[in-house]
Write a protein that binds this DNA or RNA. Structure first.
Length: 406
DNA sequence: CTAGGGTTAG
């Protein structure tokens, strides 16, 4: 392995971030850990322990792990660390492979660091990396991610022409998205005509981008026109397309959501957790938490899984209903699947449990939550106010050691 | 080997 300065820096960064030596772990394990790890230092540690497997594991997985790590770092404003991490990858021999380099461009986009994305794109000549739509699409996608929507049409006109390749259906999809994001649905619709003229396939994804944008801009009739156009062209809606339609048309009525879920099933597709969450949400909001719980109980039978939002919604409304024991049961399930609700919902639950003298349950909850917010003084305060502060007060790094050992 | 849908309470 190369021992360049930048790699060395990354290693130091990782070492400083951890209390124990990092060990190699599998990519699927790393992904699961990264999803639930909101501490950027720990995310970096997990990611670095997996870098050794970068070559042997699937590129899609490592890209996902890289994006998650970068997202965590970006959220904490650690842009220098992102730069160190991503720049170190430029010493990899794979940098001459366009997909590998493109993943760096994409990651800079995820971090909102468009200037670095562009710099990386321009460095391709130095690295001797061949150019095609792959890196171009990564670049304009990074543009969208960094909210530089105006730049996309400009780059779209300049880059393919000057480098001698043609934009593909993905490039056009990203262009359409940029128009939608700058609230110019009419320019997005115009692009469809342009695509037809050039014989570029208009996919379900592109249609979905547009009618979502039309709905968001209050143009429901036009959105439905685009939906019909999509179907007429034999371009079949998928679950994501249906979910967009559910989102903009349910109007708080669970019966509408149910009907559309039926429609998805009748179309031979399987509704996903997003589809069912609309149903759970609608029931909760009109005060029918028991109906929401019935949907939750049958999710497995439907071939779907609850996600973090499902748990949060259910626990929140069960608490509002003063059904704290049921809330605790749902909370336990959320723990089992590493999808525990947010701070405020947990606070509501633990306070309710104490109000109902369910001290054992309250303590159990605290044990778990301390692991999620190991150094949170606000959670400690919640525990203290309820007389549940079992652990000794946080001394020099003690909380973190405890957390890491579990 | 890329682009689209939600993060839902107050």
């Amino acid at each position: 392995m190369s021992s360049s300065i930048t790699l060395h820096h990354v290693r130091n960064l990782c070492a400083a971030a951890t209390t124990s030596a990092s060990s190699s772990i599998s990519i699927s394990k790393a992904k699961a850990k990264l999803r639930s790890q909101f501490d950027p230092d720990k995310a970096l540690k997990i990611y670095s322990s997996l870098s050794d497997h970068y070559t042997t594991s699937s590129p899609a997985s490592s890209r996902y792990a890289q994006d998650l790590t970068v997202k965590r770092l970006a959220k904490s404003g650690r842009f220098t660390d992102i730069e160190t991490l991503l720049e170190s990858h430029k010493n990899d021999p794979k940098i001459t492979q366009e997909p590998y380099l493109s993943s760096l461009i994409r990651s800079y986009g995820v971090a909102g660091m468009f200037d670095h994305a562009l710099k990386t794109f321009n460095q391709m000549d130095d690295f001797g990396t061949p150019r095609s739509t792959i890196s171009f699409n990564a670049l304009i996608s990074a543009c969208n991610q960094s909210k530089r929507f105006d730049l996309v049409p400009q780059l779209f006109d300049e880059i393919p022409q000057s480098h001698g390749f043609l934009p593909d259906k993905f490039s056009y999809g990203i262009l359409v998205k940029s128009y939608c994001e700058s609230n110019s649905p009419e320019l997005a619709v115009d692009t469809l005509k342009r695509m037809e003229e050039k014989g570029i396939e208009i996919t379900t994804v592109t249609f979905t981008t547009i009618f979502d944008c039309l709905y968001k801009n209050g143009k429901s009739d036009e959105a439905e026109t685009i939906w019909n156009e999509m179907v007429m062209k034999g371009c079949l809606p998928d679950v994501a397309a249906y979910n967009v339609r559910i989102m903009h048309t349910h109007n708080g009525d669970p019966e509408i959501v149910k009907a559309m879920i039926e429609e998805i099933i009748n179309a031979g597709l399987k509704p996903d957790s997003i589809s069912y969450n609309y149903l759970v949400n609608c029931y909760c909001k009109i005060g029918k938490v028991d109906e929401a719980m019935k949907v939750y109980a049958r999710l497995e039978e439907y071939g779907s899984n609850p996600n973090a939002a499902t748990y949060r919604t259910l626990v929140y409304y069960l608490c509002r209903n003063e059904e704290f024991e049921k809330g605790y049961k749902v909370f336990k399930e959320s723990v089992k699947f590493h999808k525990i609700p947010d701070f405020n919902t947990l606070k509501l639950l633990v306070e309710g449990l104490m109000k109902k003298s369910k001290k054992k349950e309250a303590k159990g909850l605290c044990r778990t939550v301390r692991k999620k917010f190991p150094n949170s003084f606000s959670w400690r305060k919640v525990e203290e106010e309820l007389g549940l502060a079992a652990a000794p007060p946080l001394a020099s790094g003690e909380g973190e050691t405890q957390e890491a050992s579990r």
